[in-house]
Design a protein around this nucleic acid. Structure first.
Length: 114
DNA sequence: GTCTTGACGTTTA
DNA sequence: CTAAACGCCAAGA
């Protein structure tokens, strides 16, 4: 497999996993990266999300950082749309941070598995 | 071609 | 406890 193909695959997989996030749940960049076999490449997940603006059906608002902080809210339009949507799905968000993260967290390695 | 920046996370001091 | 360094790699300047 060529290296460039693998990179494309990584991005594709990121989009795929994000699409699979259930309503009312959130996951982290690191969890996705780890699931894809690149636990140290969480930044790439974030970069993939940046590119996800072109795509449709990508609930990027359900992806937060490890602390449950809505680190990417500034990339939304308007920036408040992210937490607004999360709240609309039943997730409690305070101060740009997901509450009860442990409860709503959706780990692809555990939930999706194989 | 290089240099910087970035939706992150872990490790080390 | 907090702060900084490092790894990771894709785009834009």
């Amino acid at each position: 497999m060529k290296l460039s193909e693998k990179n494309r695959d990584f991005f594709h997989n990121v989009f795929d996993v994000v699409r699979l996030i259930p309503e009312g749940r959130v996951t982290s960049y690191g969890a996705i990266a780890k699931y894809l076999g690149a636990p140290r490449s969480s930044r790439m997940v974030g970069w993939a999300m940046n590119a996800s603006h072109k795509e449709e059906g990508i609930p990027a608002h359900r992806v937060v950082n490890r602390n449950g902080l809505l680190s990417g809210r500034h990339h939304f339009n308007p920036p408040e749309a992210m937490e607004q949507r999360l709240v609309a799905e039943g997730i409690d968000v305070k101060e740009h941070q997901v509450q009860s993260l442990k409860t709503v967290f959706w780990d692809p390695s555990e939930e999706l598995k194989l």
